[in-house]
Simulated scan of single mutants.
Amino acid sequence: MSGGISDLDKNRALADWLEWQLRQTRSRIRELEIKEQQEARARERARAEQSWKIQPQRSGRTALLHRGGCGLYNAQLGFLDRDEALIALAEPDIEPCEVCRPETGLVQV
């Protein structure tokens, strides 16, 4: 050895740096995946807020129309659009939820 850095030491340093780079990249990928999931949930919430859902009639209780984002009933099936919600609200055996007030936004002023 002539006082310089050996090829072995250079390659070890390079490997350490590449491992650091890989950790940084994997960390950034995790951050981006989390951000993407959060954005997808936000889009779903926004879509739900612009939709409606029907809670089926059960054990003598009237069926209820809910806003898509109402937490009192988690729909297992798809959401209704505005026209379908208006039709549902006009049905005698479907009442609006008293908590989320689904008729708000349906009635045109």
Rank of each mutant, 00 (worst) to 15 (best):
residue 9 D to A: 13
residue 40 A to H: 11
residue 105 G to L: 08
residue 85 A to E: 11
residue 86 L to Y: 06
residue 68 G to V: 09
residue 71 G to C: 05
residue 70 C to T: 03
residue 32 L to W: 10
residue 16 D to C: 09
residue 42 A to S: 13
residue 52 W to M: 13
residue 75 A to R: 03
residue 67 R to A: 07
residue 51 S to D: 12
residue 28 R to P: 00
residue 53 K to N: 03
residue 109 V to S: 05
residue 3 G to T: 01
residue 82 R to W: 02
residue 53 K to R: 02
residue 99 V to R: 03
residue 32 L to P: 02
residue 81 D to L: 02
residue 48 A to Y: 02
residue 90 A to E: 12
residue 50 Q to E: 13
residue 93 D to G: 00
residue 7 D to N: 13
residue 64 L to F: 07
residue 35 K to Y: 01
residue 74 N to F: 07
residue 79 F to T: 05
residue 70 C to P: 05
residue 80 L to G: 09
residue 33 E to P: 01
residue 49 E to Y: 04
residue 32 L to I: 15
residue 26 R to E: 15
residue 64 L to T: 10
residue 77 L to I: 10
residue 95 E to I: 12
residue 63 A to D: 09
residue 47 R to T: 11
residue 85 A to D: 11
residue 9 D to E: 13
residue 62 T to R: 11
residue 69 G to K: 05
residue 34 I to Y: 08
residue 103 E to V: 11
residue 68 G to N: 06
residue 1 M to D: 09
residue 29 I to E: 08
residue 34 I to M: 14
residue 92 P to S: 02
residue 57 Q to E: 15
residue 94 I to Q: 03
residue 38 Q to G: 04
residue 20 W to T: 09
residue 32 L to H: 08
residue 43 R to Y: 12
residue 36 E to K: 07
residue 93 D to K: 13
residue 87 I to G: 07
residue 84 E to W: 07
residue 82 R to F: 08
residue 88 A to I: 04
residue 82 R to K: 14
residue 77 L to S: 10
residue 93 D to M: 13
